[in-house]
Nucleic acid binder design. Structure first.
Length: 488
RNA sequence: GGGGCAUUCGUCUAGCGGCCAAGGACACCGCCCUCUCAAGGCGGAGAUCACCGGUUCGAAUCCGGUAUGCCCUACCA
């Protein structure tokens, strides 16, 4: 029975790399009909961030990654680790270290200065238990360190990296139990993975170098180690490790920006995993079906936001208009200016939605794409308004200044046409306006461009006659009048 | 400084000794569609497979070395 875990530490909001690790663990568990366990590794009291735990849970839920056990909290299992450390102390695999932080820092500084590999110099390694009692009696709180074998090597077969070998001489006597009674990652992790009967450890590449320590610990405890699978990391644009300073990387932020969980999981899966040479779109269900460790990549991947945006757009377009409106509504409510009265008219929204849906890559873009449908008045410069007219004037051999009277006339005629239009539907409107354009001797580009800017305040918009039809007679007239006023 | 891992178009990747003068996707460019912007369709440009040797009839694929990058080297995880 496959048993895997996602074991984040609540020292910050979960970023894309953390969640991808969660995704792969989850996929592995579901693919094999195994168990996915959630464990919060909150052993660092000082670095604990308020709200991080909740963010981890909600991000997992948002992505649709459900867990079968947990969340377990290491902070609630302290006796377990202390007991384990005691066992190691008794079996001689660990020892008390009374070195002060100052001495340790000084030692490290000196090692670096002399270009020696930094690491604990094992001063306390040879202290006898009798000495321990003595120091303990003095009130010095020691840490517990692991006694790394001085010779030999540890090798293991990583399911992604293959055979990896480390010489024990490059490992130092790392800390197992801190002075505050909390275990370090290394201790807690091994104790828990054993206790929870974890069969496969899928974790980020950055842990590869710690694996020999972990294996040595398993050995010291007499535990059977799990299989290790070190996942390639997700990197920032400069190929360094992803962190806060690289901008929006927490999953919560992606949600706020209007990315869909379907797109996130699909995209994240493709960062370090692939099925073949051409398939790109996967539902979670399909990922479960096809996921395999053998197809995991070995190299780090830069997070390509543009491709994520493209993919999110593809997903957005898959939904029905009703579904799209349902998803966009909260974002619209949040992003539209306060002057727009709430609640938003759902029927009105339904009319424009198909045109917005086709253009939006994220739900966060919807308000910016659709705001002119809601605003009382649109704001713009006369430059864009007259651009097409000036071009037409030039073509007709007139001065550029002629553009304004031409536009004014066109606006007047357009208002008349709007008022008199029998059917306020895109088709008949288009016929009417095309005829009108010809009558005025204007090119379609110039005439429609003028109307577009006057009605929407922008040079790019959904198709003009759909826009007119949706806006309705009243709004169109008001805006055309405003444009006319702007020109005179 | 030591150790480990990695290295295919700008980016994500396919490739596991001959099917590759390297395939797909995003981005980019052009054309078509067209009232603009999208979406869609078609096409283009873009990688001497980091480099140098070796093994082999044959190497992006196997082996060595070099370079570069990343990670670890905390009483952080």
């Amino acid at each position: 029975m496959v048993r895997v875990r996602f074991a984040p530490s609540p020292t910050g909001f979960p970023h894309i790399g953390n969640l991808r690790t969660a995704l792969f663990n989850w996929l592995f568990a579901r693919h094999h009909g195994g168990v996915f366990i959630l464990r919060i590794e909150d052993t660092d009291v000082a670095r604990k961030v308020e709200g991080a735990e909740e963010a981890i849970l909600s991000s997992l839920r948002w992505m649709g990654l459900d867990w079968d056990e947990g969340p377990y909290f290491q902070s609630e299992r302290l006796p377990l680790y202390q007991e384990a450390a005691r066992g190691l102390l008794e079996s001689g695999h660990a020892y008390h270290c009374f070195c002060s932080t100052e001495r340790l820092n000084e030692m490290r500084r000196e090692q670096i200065r002399r270009k020696m590999p930094p690491g604990y110099d094992r001063l306390c390694r040879s202290l006898s238990p009798a000495h321990w009692e003595e120091r303990l009696a003095q009130g010095i709180t020691p840490v517990v360190r692991f006694r790394i074998p001085l010779e030999g090597q540890t090798r293991f077969n990583d399911l992604v990296k293959g055979q990896v070998t480390f010489n024990h001489s490059t490992l130092d006597d790392f800390v197992l139990l801190k002075a505050d009674g909390f275990p370090t990652y290394h201790l807690a992790n091994i104790v828990d993975d054993h206790d929870m009967r974890i069969t496969h450890v899928l974790r980020a590449d950055e842990w590869l170098a710690s694996t020999p320590r972990h294996l040595l610990l398993y050995q010291a405890f007499g535990y059977e180690p799990p299989q290790f699978v070190h996942l390639p990391m997700i990197l920032a644009d400069d190929r360094s490790k992803l962190s806060k300073r690289h901008g929006a990387v927490s999953v919560t932020e992606f949600e706020e920006q209007g990315f869909l969980p379907q797109a996130m999981t699909n995209f994240m899966a493709l960062l370090g995993w692939s099925m073949d040479d051409h398939t790109e779109m996967f539902t979670l269900k399909e990922l479960v079906r096809y996921f395999s460790v053998e197809r995991l990549a070995r190299t780090g991947a830069i997070f390509n936001r543009e491709k994520l945006e493209w993919m999110n757009g593809v997903y957005l377009r898959k939904f029905t208009v009703e579904e799209f409106v349902g998803m966009a509504l909260p974002y619209l409510g949040r992003d539209l200016p306060p002057s727009v009265s709430r609640p938003l008219d759902r029927d009105y929204l339904l009319q424009m939605a198909p045109f917005i849906q086709e253009r939006a890559r994220t739900l966060g873009e919807v308000a910016g794409l659709a705001d002119f449908f809601f605003l009382a008045e649109v704001d713009y410069e006369t430059g864009p308004l007259l651009k097409g007219m000036e071009k037409d004037a030039r073509k007709q051999g007139k001065a550029a200044a002629e553009a304004t009277p031409m536009a004014v006339q066109a606006l007047d005629k357009a208002m008349e046409a709007i008022q008199q239009a029998a059917e306020f539907e895109p088709e008949p409107l288009e016929h009417g306006f095309r005829a009108l354009g010809e009558e005025l001797g204007l090119s379609a580009g110039a005439f429609f461009g003028l109307l577009r800017v006057a009605l929407t305040g922008r040079t790019a918009s959904p198709p003009l006659f759909n826009t007119i039809s949706i806006l309705g007679r009243g709004r169109c007239l008001t805006r055309l009048k405003a444009a006319r006023k702007k020109l005179s």
